[in-house]
Amino acid sequence: MINQADINSIKTYGADVIQTKISRIEDGTRKNYFSLLPSPERIRESIPNSFVIINPMNTVGGDGYWFAENDKAILIAVFDCMGHGHFASMMARTYIKLLRQIIDEQGIFFPNQVLLEIHTAVQKKFSNSTAKKSLIGTGADFGIVRINKAIREMEFSGAKMNLYQVSDGKLNVIKADRIQVGEYFDHDHEYVTHIIDLKKQQDSKFYLFSDGVTDLMGGPENKKFGSARLKQLLESIYPRTMEDQKKEMVSTLGKWQGSNMALDDVLLMGFSY
């Protein structure tokens, strides 16, 4: 279960006296949501230089991640389901169950193959849905990396979620394919595998994140945080430890948002191997 210390505090939008009197009761949906996610401590056991920032817009959300390891490889998946709130949380749960099945039970560790398996499973589950008034989007952005521990090589495949790599203080964006998983069932889905040689790029830092990070509204002119600002931030904190980076990112994003209500869930995972 995810550690409470790793969760940013939720916004309650001003509910005060009444809320505090009953707040000793834990929100069951929030507990369920976070209990599905691997703990950042577990991830740090295998990747000491790593962090997770997760802040659903409400108590729960549609962003999630997965982590798996076997003798040969480490796999990290980050995803962002369409929408937010409780319905998105239901979809996030569906995706986590599929990731667990495909990666942990079937032992599939290749990112592009995992994406295709997930897409097929979601299609099977939802393409003939009996929903009379569908209120849920079944698609998700995905970024998956597999680290081959022996040869220190990383593979990345993405579905509308790029992998950011910062080396020597310069950001390089490794582009994902532009089609989500779990949507557009009439279209072919293929995902390219990008290979990154970690031996030659030992000091590289990598980031996968939901679009809630760049779409975060705030600042002096109430604008999106945006890709350019994120690039600048990641390049500026490049020399710092991942622990420090997390602190700086939480602080910067928090200041940017200020008192604005969040419009989407925020998830960012950073790591260096």
Binding site: T12, G14, I18, K21, S23, R24, I25, T59, H86
Partner: peptide, 18 residues
């Protein structure tokens, strides 16, 4: 002003009403 929903199962023992 409304808070985010708090969901629970049954009637928790420590549910207090103002």
């Amino acid at each position: 002003i409304i808070s985010v929903p708090l969901v629970f199962e049954g009637r928790p023992a420590d549910l207090e009403f103002p």
